[in-house]
Write a protein that binds this DNA or RNA. Structure first.
Lengths: 200, 200
DNA sequence: GTTTATTTGATACGAGCGTATCATCAAACC
DNA sequence: GGTTTGATGATACGCTCGTATCAAATAAAC
């Protein structure tokens, strides 16, 4: 028998190379050969672990989702207050540091591809923002019950608005319109308006 | 001499074909040959009017900008009230109808390309959102002077927030998370909060 | 130490890409 | 009315793409 290799880890390494290219040069530049070079392996190896390019792209999207989830969880404060949960989650999605910029850029690349290839979105895409939005809506409901947020607000509407605002701010950062700190400030400005007098 | 042809109009026709492809199949699918086929002309003709593909892509971005500007102006109400100007401008950027969906999708395709090819953004990209944002900030300042908006707000921050919110909502519509009407409703909800008791 | 299942390497194929070249057409001008 | 010149057509080149094919190397099992 041959030397045994951790199949999943090898796939992750190659997937990471793909995401690195998507971040720095866009998914248009992510050919099988370029991914192989970036991962430091042969083209044949990429083909061995991913039968087709579509399979590679789909797996890459999965890994990106994992990275995003991990980052969001890492940004949830201890102990978890309602405002802290909302602020942390949204800040995680914002490109405020190198990792955030990388993830936001990579996500944008996949988003554009999914617009043209709906099968990508169908398999994995639309669920993630939906989850995030529902999570936020629940947090806002909790904050209302704790008296930190005006009960007149509709949690789902507020959550959708906050997430859209954050995504839009992220786009403007990637577009060079402002830096991460400025985006963060605008987000905080809105959160201050939402959470009456309570401090995070 | 040969039959004289309206050079600019021909370029516009070919550019329109490019934008149509960018909308329906993404810019990855926009090869010179595909653009020629979509425009119903020969490959040579596309090369004649645009020496290189980069030139075609850049011109297409210019035409897209013109279409966007025209749509925004068309959405400014008569007579122009402060809230009407802000609402109209933001609604124009939202994919609430077929034209809006087309423009937002095409813009998203260019945005993703510009992330990977900064020269595109350098020539044309970052100026447009900036103009929009400054325009909005001025409108909000006017609304404050008219007493329609709380003077405690910072116009630039509010304008940036509104535009980011609108862009984020547009992304969620393209992503299939909600339809144009729902996005519009969320935007209106925020505008209601901003413009105290005044009606549009 | 041979065997053998698994992992890696080298290379080829057909298609599509951007671009360039050469030829042709048709209308305006002298 | 031939000549010039802008507009169009047909085709080819070199390259990269995704994918497939054919070997070779490797290390656990006996």
């Amino acid at each position: 028998m041959p030397k045994r290799v951790d199949y999943d880890q090898r796939r992750r390494e190659i997937g990471a190379a793909l995401l690195r290219i998507a971040d720095t040069r866009g998914l248009q530049a992510a050919s099988m050969r370029e991914v192989a070079a970036e991962a430091g392996v042969s083209l044949r190896l990429v083909q061995y672990y991913f039968r087709t390019k579509d399979e590679l792209l789909l797996a890459g999207l999965g890994y990106l989702g994992e990275e995003l989830s991990a980052r969001v969880e890492r940004h949830i404060p201890r102990p978890p207050t309602p405002r802290g949960m909302v602020t942390g989650t949204l800040t995680a999605v914002l490109p405020t540091d190198a990792e955030g910029r990388r993830l936001t850029r990579t996500y944008a690349a996949y988003y554009a591809l999914a617009l043209a290839e709906p099968k990508l979105a169908a398999q994995h895409g639309a669920t993630y923002p939906d989850l995030l939005e529902r999570f936020l809506a629940n947090q806002i409901r909790s904050a209302q019950e704790a008296g930190d947020v005006d009960a007149a607000h509709d949690p789902a509407t507020v959550a959708a608005g906050l997430l859209a605002l954050t995504n839009g701010l992220g786009s403007s950062v990637l577009g060079g319109q402002r830096d991460g700190a400025a985006a963060q400030a605008i987000l905080t400005y809105h959160l201050d308006g939402l959470f009456g007098g309570s401090r995070p």
